[in-house]
């Protein structure tokens, strides 16, 4: 009886501990290398000033919101030109403007998205440049 009690209690505690420490042993202690943004594309190497539409911090955190705004403005308002904070003007186009420079979607977009577990639906319709060649 008594032994039985402790068997159940320790089983419960073990499950709890294994559960909450799951992340510690799931990766077998190997430190993953955080994905670096790969800017090494032919298009970018041609740029004289290696600068995205807006500054990096903004692009890192808010690119999805920018794209959503672009999408609505371009499709619904017919406004196809985006004027950046510094006055430069760009076409509101995921495949044209963004992927124009970042032609390495797998290494640029996907790596990060996979790392933080994000699955954008953009590419259900919009075509990745590389895909055409396939």
């Amino acid at each position: 009886m008594k032994q039985n009690k402790w068997r159940i209690i320790s089983l419960g505690i073990a499950i709890f501990i294994i559960g909450v420490t799951f992340p510690f042993w799931y990766g077998k202690g190997e430190s993953p290398v955080p994905p670096a943004l790969d800017l090494d594309t032919p298009e970018i190497s041609l740029l004289t000033e290696k600068k995205c539409i807006e500054d990096t911090a903004f692009m890192r955190t808010k690119h999805m919101k920018l794209l959503k705004a672009w999408r609505d403005e371009a499709v619904r308002e017919g406004e196809r030109l985006y004027t950046a904070g510094d006055g430069r003007v760009f076409e509101k186009s995921l495949t044209g403007s963004c992927l124009g420079c970042h032609s390495n979607k797998e290494r640029f977009c996907d790596r990060c998205h996979n790392y933080v577990g994000v699955a954008p639906t953009c590419y259900d319709c919009h075509i990745i440049p590389g895909e055409v060649k396939k």
Binding site: K65, A69, T83, G87, V89
Partner: peptide, 24 residues
């Protein structure tokens, strides 16, 4: 949740069009 909209994206007034971009 994003109802407030992203006014922030329009940081500056449009200044000039890229000369390469065609007239619609």
């Amino acid at each position: 949740p994003v109802g407030a909209k992203e006014n922030t994206f329009r940081v500056g007034a449009p200044q000039f069009l890229k000369s390469s971009y065609p007239q619609p």
